[in-house]
Design a protein around this nucleic acid. Structure first.
Length: 120
DNA sequence: GCCTTGACGGGTG
DNA sequence: ACACCCGCCAAGG
C-alpha cells in the first residue's frame, strides 16, 4: 500500500523533470542550466542538467535551443545539427543573439522557480 | 570497481 | 578584470 514517496527526485525522474521544465519554456524565452538545477532542488547540479539535455538531444519535445548557460551563452550550439541551428531558432523566436551571446538576456530569461511560486 | 569526463556555476587568486 | 580551481551528480571507459 505505501507507495514509495520519493522525498528526493529519483535520478530517472531527474531527466524527466528537466524535460518537463524545458518543454514549459515559453516561446521567445530562455533559461539556464543553473536555474533548472535550482528548480530541481540542487542549484549546484547544473552539470546534471547538461547531462540530461544530452539525453534529451534527439527529442523534438525538448527545445534545448532555449537552454543556455547563466551568462546567456549558447554553449550547447555545438550539439545541434549545425552550429548555427540554435541561434537561428532563437532569433526566429524574437531573441537577438550576437556571437553566440544572447542580447537582453535579462529580458528573455525565464525562471521555472518563479512559475512554481506563481502557481502556488 | 575506480577514475575521468561532462551542454555549469561560483569563489578565490 | 581575467584566469584558474573546486564543487555537484551521474555515466562511460
Amino acid at each position: 500500500m505505501q507507495e514509495k514517496e520519493t522525498k528526493k527526485f529519483d535520478k530517472q525522474n531527474f531527466f524527466e523533470l528537466v524535460y518537463q521544465v524545458v518543454r514549459l519554456i515559453p516561446k521567445g524565452r530562455v533559461t539556464s542550466y543553473g536555474l533548472i538545477g535550482q528548480y530541481l532542488g540542487s542549484k549546484k547540479s547544473a552539470r546534471m542538467v547538461g547531462w540530461a539535455m544530452n539525453n534529451a538531444h534527439g527529442l523534438a519535445d525538448v527545445p534545448a535551443h532555449r537552454v543556455v548557460n547563466s551568462v546567456g551563452l549558447l554553449t550547447g550550439k555545438a550539439f545541434f545539427e549545425t552550429p548555427t541551428q540554435m541561434q537561428e531558432l532563437l532569433e526566429s523566436e524574437g531573441i537577438i543573439i550576437k556571437k553566440d551571446q544572447i542580447q537582453d538576456f535579462d529580458k528573455v530569461c525565464w525562471n521555472p522557480i518563479e512559475l512554481n511560486e506563481e502557481l502556488v
